[in-house]
Amino acid sequence: MPIDKFVSVQTSFVPMPIENVDTDQIIPARFLKATTKEGFGDNLFYDWRYDKDGKPKADFVLNNPNYSGSVLVAGKNFGSGSSREHAAWAIAGYGFRAVVSSFFADIFRNNSLNNGVLPVQVSEVFLAGLFKAVEADNKAEVKIDLEQQIITNVSTGETEDFEINAYKKSCLLNGYDDIDYLLSLSDEVEAYEAKAVRF
């Protein structure tokens, strides 16, 4: 089944200069009781976004009308902790197409890629430049070009290359998902099983 294609995006962005944002913050465990993938965007960062009565906290960035855009820019080690793919569903469901950080946790990175959300790992210096740009101008933009694997801080013109493996890049550009590919390998899987050591 196809995933959303990602080719390139130029947009204002939402800054979250906090390190070690874990998946329990992205989507708290009590919201994991659903049996479908829909609706998680409403609960994205719930405990940072809403007070105990469910009212939006004015000082949280997603509640600040000055910031908008389809890219989230966050501090290093984003997505650590639980393997819950609900975190990627929440980010995609909210409308983010990419997350920029100077470091990503492994499982979150895979989960994002499997849901058409591009994790873009940049240097500490480039990340600091984005935070500086958005501080000076809330509507500062970032441009992410997957084909070229280049991210641009539009305010300064500064660019940086980013890495993604060729297979995943092709999946995102074309909207392919892994399962269709794996299903096509059934003969190879059977051949593997025939010679594998098993007890």
């Binding site: 393997s83 998902d177 892994d178």
Partner: peptide, 9 residues
């Protein structure tokens, strides 16, 4: 540990 897309795989 794996995500749910990988559970499906």
């Amino acid at each position: 540990g794996i995500g749910t897309s990988e559970v499906e795989m």
